Computed example of a mutant assay.
Amino acid sequence: MHSFDEEQKIFIYTGPDGSGRKTLARMVATVYDMETVLSYTTRSPRHYETDGKDYHFVSEETFQKMKQNREFIESVDIDGFQYGIREQEIKNAFKHHRLLYLALNPEGADKLKQMFGEKVIRIFVYADRDTVIQRQKERQDSDSDITRHMNHYDETMSYKTKCEHTFENYDLPQVSYQISELVESYLDRDYIESDY
């Protein structure tokens, strides 16, 4: 298992589908030298998703092979689809960056928190039920996908109280700024003042 250096941290964005957590994560990452680690999944890409940018989309067979080889630091099954984070990719990302961010469902966020403790900071991003449905419609999710996501809405929202920080995403630039300030508070920047 990865052992952390003093300054290394993982920020995990979690919350209901359609809350804007991935968009916020990317916006905040541009302010800091933050690298992301993508999940592997057996589900098909949605029309707006790109392999290698949103997820690593793999076959069930490939996923199971990776799982047998113990490549995943954590993996979960959601609605019959597999999701997993590859340990080697976390190690590789930490070679060049001290801050990583991941967008995960509560199960994945919980597992990483249990494994890495205070090195993992969970940021719960949410919006009300009508707003997330509207956002999913705007990005042209299928009705069956929206129904599937909304079946998890209440359960996902119940994870809010377990996370270190919570943001209602009502205004992207504003919330992005608030999260950037939060990240800043975790960076122990000791400026040495010298008197000449």
Rank of each mutant, 00 (worst) to 15 (best):
1 M>W: 00
158 S>D: 15
59 S>L: 06
187 L>W: 07
112 L>K: 06
196 Y>S: 07
90 I>E: 01
91 K>H: 05
84 G>C: 00
131 T>N: 10
99 L>W: 05
6 E>R: 11
59 S>V: 03
63 F>E: 08
4 F>V: 01
111 K>A: 13
193 E>Q: 06
36 T>R: 12
179 I>C: 03
149 H>L: 13
136 Q>L: 15
11 F>E: 00
124 F>T: 01
127 A>K: 08
62 T>C: 08
106 P>N: 03
37 V>R: 10
168 E>M: 14
168 E>D: 04
9 K>Y: 01
189 R>S: 05
17 D>L: 08
185 S>K: 09
109 A>K: 08
135 R>Y: 10
166 T>H: 07
43 R>G: 07
171 D>W: 12
1 M>Y: 01
44 S>I: 12
168 E>Q: 10
59 S>Y: 03
30 T>A: 09
68 Q>A: 09
82 Q>H: 08
98 R>D: 04
50 T>C: 09
133 I>S: 10
131 T>H: 09
190 D>V: 10
134 Q>H: 15
23 T>A: 09
153 Y>T: 13
170 Y>I: 12
40 Y>E: 04
10 I>R: 04
70 R>P: 06
100 L>T: 01
54 D>M: 06
139 R>H: 12
173 P>R: 12
12 I>Y: 01
39 S>P: 00
112 L>Y: 05
105 N>C: 12
49 E>R: 02
171 D>Y: 12
62 T>I: 12
9 K>S: 02
112 L>V: 00
60 E>W: 11
126 Y>K: 03
133 I>G: 02
156 T>E: 07
90 I>A: 05
106 P>L: 01
164 E>A: 03
5 D>F: 09
66 M>N: 11
103 A>M: 04
193 E>C: 06
57 F>K: 06
136 Q>V: 08
164 E>C: 05
9 K>T: 03
26 R>M: 09
80 G>F: 07
43 R>L: 09
27 M>N: 13
82 Q>S: 02
149 H>C: 14
191 Y>M: 07
189 R>C: 06
72 F>W: 03
75 S>D: 11
117 G>V: 05
170 Y>A: 11
15 G>C: 06
73 I>M: 00
156 T>D: 11
44 S>L: 15
103 A>W: 03
105 N>W: 02
128 D>I: 05
63 F>R: 03
60 E>M: 11
182 L>A: 03
162 K>V: 08
140 Q>C: 14
124 F>S: 04
110 D>S: 11
115 M>C: 02
104 L>M: 08
103 A>H: 07
175 V>I: 14
18 G>F: 06
46 R>L: 14
108 G>S: 10
195 D>Q: 08
195 D>L: 13
137 K>D: 12
16 P>Q: 00
38 L>N: 06
163 C>V: 10
82 Q>T: 01
12 I>Q: 03
117 G>I: 07
12 I>G: 01
104 L>R: 06
89 E>F: 04
95 K>N: 08
97 H>M: 02
79 D>W: 02
